[in-house]
Design a protein around this nucleic acid. Sequence first.
DNA 1: AAAAAATTTGACTAACGGTCAATTTATGAC
DNA 2: GTCATAAATTGACCGTTAGTCAAATTTTTT
Lengths: 243, 243
Amino acid sequence: MPVPTLSRKDRERIAREQLIVEHARRLLLSQGFQGFSLDDLAKSIEYSKGTIYLHFESKEDLALTVATSALRERANLFERAIRFKGKSRERARAIGFACCHFMVAYPDFFNIEMTMKSQSFWEKASEKRRMENSMQGGRTFRAMLEVVHHGFESGDLPRAHISAEHIALAMASVTMGSHIMSQIPEMRLLAGIDDSILIVRQNQDVLLDGFKWNSLFADYDYASTDRRIQQEIFPEAAWLKSA
Amino acid sequence: MPVPTLSRKDRERIAREQLIVEHARRLLLSQGFQGFSLDDLAKSIEYSKGTIYLHFESKEDLALTVATSALRERANLFERAIRFKGKSRERARAIGFACCHFMVAYPDFFNIEMTMKSQSFWEKASEKRRMENSMQGGRTFRAMLEVVHHGFESGDLPRAHISAEHIALAMASVTMGSHIMSQIPEMRLLAGIDDSILIVRQNQDVLLDGFKWNSLFADYDYASTDRRIQQEIFPEAAWLKSA
DNA sequence: AAAAAATTTGACTAACGGTCAATTTATGAC
DNA sequence: GTCATAAATTGACCGTTAGTCAAATTTTTT
């Protein structure tokens, strides 16, 4: 890699933007989107509020940038996950693993993501930041798609009337939905939940069963696959419990 | 029913609270939680803002009340759905139908529900309103549970290692998750979605297949069941399309 | 009809996202 | 080194809004 062609000014600008995003991330995660104020952020980064607005055109724009940086990390995890050497169903499981790993690593990030999905959030963010977010979203989706196609091609996943894209969407849906529902205190009570992760993975599994993904091996030992996924792909994931 | 023992004052109070909730609902649905202001609401109901605060202790408290009133309607739909005479899997499908019917009837309500799930929403609402909401949530959950138990007892749904509560939770999760994901414009593009309802119902179905719910009849004609559900239980649901 | 109690009000406060004229800092010509 | 010009930075200020409460109004009681 050659010496960067960026001027000192450009480098300073980038460094400051990073500073803003880092502090914003901290404040967002600890106080939520409504909770954190740009005045606090300005004080925290030791620049004025006006300076923040030289980088971001609204609070939402900034929050979206933070969210995108987290989504990028998730996409990284997904792309690591699909490198798992194994049957397609196992690779799908590796993606589920990655998803849960992300949940554990950034437990509070989910609230930010939720805020973004509701509300008139997107229209207040800049086109540029929306694009960046879409890019990272696309990466996660493509990772899932690749595994689905592997399932099709290997014959482990029957080509029913449902498209690969819809199957990937369903995987994402059941994960997000299970995550949300299993976080609601009332639900935890009603359904007797103590470990959200277990619920999420269980539901992912049931869904894949529903697609008849590799259903020939109903008694397959997923616990050992999990151990392999953890050891080979996510050695830093210490949360895995033997179910 | 005897003549109500409520005083004129009490009746007036209740009527006014209803008035507030109705107008709040309209404004909430059209403008979202952030969008609608209590000053607008006060003007709309022709009372002062102070009066609103005699009924609700915060904006969140009011929004939660609106949400609960909608949840009550959903619970009503669920309880109607489980009256469907048929196999357990068909009754489960009737609940899915009810859920989608609610989505269609109150398309904007979902955003309010999302706002409630994120944020520090709950702690700003009063204990009383939270309780009322839990009550209605409990009704929907019990409706699902009843159908799951019917599945167990009839033998249509294998008693695997998963509890009835977890199965009900999974049904709710896949519905909510699919709804969220299929509403995201980017996702609609990536996965080529034009009808969210179809996606939600498809995913519900795949999940139930995953639980091996009545899987003996893989080729069962669900379209005709749907028609029966619509005719017998939800004659007002005009959205059903032949898939 | 007057006093007391209950109800209702809307001006006011504090907080926050966002703006921009004024100030400070950096640059470069001489 | 000095000064003029340009660029970068600031924070006082604005409009909006959730929430409060002393004052005004209405109702009830005596």
